[in-house]
């Protein structure tokens, strides 16, 4: 046991914790400083976790097969950029992005198509809600059988996973306008299409973006898990399952780090677009989210 490393980590943890408490309680006059403090608090927390992780692993001499320290993962990450990039391109750029675009687009289109038929809405909505609660990921083996080992089968899984959240959210978003507003459009003699584009779609954006955000994480999960069922020799899911078998745990963690960064960035981009598109929404203009 390496006591000094462990002690140093614990001291760092306590100091960071105290600093965070102090930072949260302090009132800043300067708005820029206040914003910096808001961003700094979670960052310090994240750094603390990494330091504690490193300290505990080194302090207790945990074998790196079980849990490699962050520094080791970082070294591995830097050393195998080409492999990671190939996996990223196969899984993220091909499977995830294509499937996400297709699934969300289809969900949106179907929602618009059934918009004029209350009968179909009543029939499809409960089913859509139901399917959203199902372990859709289970269709992965079937899709691999139908569409082959390459990225097309992963796209199919992602399409199925993202379709229903999009459909359900868009339909409820299109129903979000009140009678008053729709009556106003009627007094303007607006037809169905004009009402849709000028009133109901803008009102539905928050719902649609909610689905887009949910789907951004679902898509990545779907693509990676689908790769467990068969894939060419490239891809994040493939790399994770084979490197686990070879006990190269640091490589697995490097892949996970890439997946985490990609997933967070994807989510962040969608959230950013949401802020631009729905600039009028109370949760964006300030006040409570």
């Amino acid at each position: 046991m390496n006591l000094s490393v462990l002690l140093a980590a614990i001291v760092f943890w306590l100091a960071a914790w105290a600093f965070n408490e102090w930072l949260v309680r302090r009132k800043f006059v300067n708005p820029a400083a206040d914003r910096a403090a808001r961003i700094a608090v979670p960052l310090i927390f994240g750094a603390t976790i990494l330091v504690l992780w490193e300290g505990i692993v080194r302090g207790f001499n945990v074998p790196s097969v079980l849990l490699p320290p962050p520094s080791m993962i970082w070294v591995r990450l830097i050393n195998s950029v080409p492999t990671l990039w190939a996996d990223f391109r196969q899984t993220f750029l091909k499977s995830v992005l294509v499937g996400y675009a297709l699934g969300c687009g289809l969900g949106f289109l179907v929602a618009i198509l059934i918009d004029r038929s209350p009968f179909l809405q009543k029939g499809l909505l409960p089913l859509g809600n139901f399917v959203s609660a199902l372990p859709v990921i289970g269709v992965a083996p079937i899709m691999v059988m139908w569409f082959g080992f390459d990225w097309q089968s992963k796209v199919a899984v992602v399409v199925i996973m993202t379709f229903f959240p999009m459909l359900v959210n868009t339909v409820s978003g299109l129903a979000a306008t009140s009678h008053m507003e729709r009556d106003l459009m009627r007094t303007y003699a607006a037809d169905w299409f004009q009402t849709l584009v000028k009133l109901r779609l803008p009102a539905a954006w928050p719902f649609i973006f909610n689905a887009l955000k949910i789907n951004s994480t679902l898509a990545l999960i779907g693509a990676i898990v689908a790769e467990f069922f068969g894939t060419p020799i490239v891809g994040m899911g493939f790399r994770i399952s084979t490197e686990v078998g070879r006990m190269n745990v640091d490589m697995v963690w490097a892949e996970i780090a890439v997946a985490a960064v990609a997933g967070s960035a994807f989510y962040g981009v969608v959230a950013l677009i949401e802020r631009i598109v729905t600039f009028w929404h109370p949760s964006v203009r300030g006040g409570q989210a």
């Binding site: 949260v24 979670p42 927390f45 990545l220 990676i224 899911g237 697995v252 997946a259 997933g263 967070s264």
Partner: peptide, 18 residues
């Protein structure tokens, strides 16, 4: 302030992959 952003970030990590 410190935990909430990480709770949200933890879900953008495809845990199923781990």
């Amino acid at each position: 302030r410190s935990l909430m952003p990480w709770v949200i970030a933890s879900q953008t990590i495809p845990i199923l992959a781990i």
